[in-house]
Design a binder for these strands. Structure first.
Lengths: 209, 209
DNA sequence: GTCTTTTTTAATCATTTGATTAAATCATTT
DNA sequence: AAATGATTTAATCAAATGATTAAAAAAGAC
């Protein structure tokens, strides 16, 4: 053996280009609607290269799915676990981080939601996500605030659902919203920027006892 | 010509059975992932019958898509246009109707959201939905309440987005929510039932000046 | 009951699509 | 620059899939 990682041959990084192309196409069309030929064309390489590097469409998809889930979950989990920030600060952080993430990558929410529908087991059966989130510092702080009478006594699940709903849904529904609201991309993004400040205000208002 | 509508031949309604099966399968798997053979099997009929009655997979899908969109939009539009109900009552009606609709047919939100992604133009370019909704009685009542100082001055778009987010998102995300929250179907439905009362409370709290 | 029309089926086509193969090209080492 | 191994391609395969066809079966008209 000699060159195990010779770096990229032709221009620079065929393998990386394929993965990037796969990310783009899978995110935009979903697994079932993407053809391996679409990915090859998007990457500007031959179809056989895809199978050479990634063995199959399924394997390639699993990689993209896993990375996307990690990217999406990491922002949330890191905030949820933080011992240093208050309940209010966490609410603000979640809104800001998620909206920024989704402005940068607006296809993510619908991609995750629709692909998980056919796939639930694979991704969550291993990960104890229920425990991690529902026993997190965030939820403990929320429960403490309830016991102190500082916020209304509503299930933490509703609280999380509301925060995610207000943050994520507009991006999942953006094609419809742009039509129904008659919005250009610019205006839609402006609206989402506003929500970084507004969502924490609305959430806190809903918590008033 | 003689029998134009001879009613159904074999058991009762092959055409209807195919449409019902198509609805089930399309809603569950989306257009790209469903095979015409899946629909035929679900309907308990031969594959050729599907093409005999509906000409093609595309035509059949268009019918299902159109009917589903109508079903989904009708509940909303009829409330929005109602001259007899107050702003508060409309908020309550939207929450109740939509949650009931989606408990009965939980696949609808994700089906609509993901299919529209590849299809925006077809369904909205004809329909002046933007005008219908944004000039509805509902929005006029909201604007009036702002001018009267009864509610905070926030864009009607945010208001609609929030109402839809809190109502629809949990169903779109239900596979994930059930995993993350460790919920059985029973418990999930119970949570959604609670939201029929809670969402109007939260929305109204967020409107307080 | 016979005839005509409608409904249903089995068999088959043509295309699409994921994947493989064998050979050619390129890069690196010596 | 020759040899070796890594990368890339064109050509091709086999299975899946949407659609059609021709004939059989059922239903209705007379």
């Amino acid at each position: 053996m000699s060159a195990k990682k010779v770096n990229t041959p032709k221009d620079q990084g065929a393998e990386a280009k394929i993965k990037e192309a796969a990310r783009t196409v899978f995110h935009k069309k979903g697994f079932a609607a993407t053809r391996t030929r679409d990915i090859a064309e998007e990457a500007g390489i031959n179809l056989a290269l895809l199978n050479y590097y990634f063995r199959s469409k399924n394997k390639l998809f699993e990689i993209i799915m896993m990375e996307t889930m990690m990217q999406f979950m990491h922002g949330m989990v890191s905030v949820f676990k933080d011992e240093e920030t208050s309940l209010d600060e966490k609410i603000e952080l979640v809104a800001i981080r998620y909206i920024d993430l989704m402005i940068a990558d607006p296809e993510i929410p619908l991609f995750i939601l629709s692909e998980i529908r056919s796939n639930v087991d694979n991704f969550f059966d291993n990960i104890p996500l229920a425990k991690v989130l529902m026993n997190s510092v965030f939820i403990e702080q929320y429960k403490t605030a309830i016991q102190a009478g500082e916020v209304k006594d509503v299930s933490p699940l509703h609280f999380i659902i509301n925060l995610m709903s207000l943050t994520v849904f507009p991006f999942a529904a953006s094609p419809m919203l742009k039509k129904v609201g008659g919005l250009k991309n610019e205006q839609f993004e402006q609206l989402m920027q506003e929500r970084k400040k507004l969502i924490p205000i609305w959430i806190k208002a809903s918590l008033q006892p």
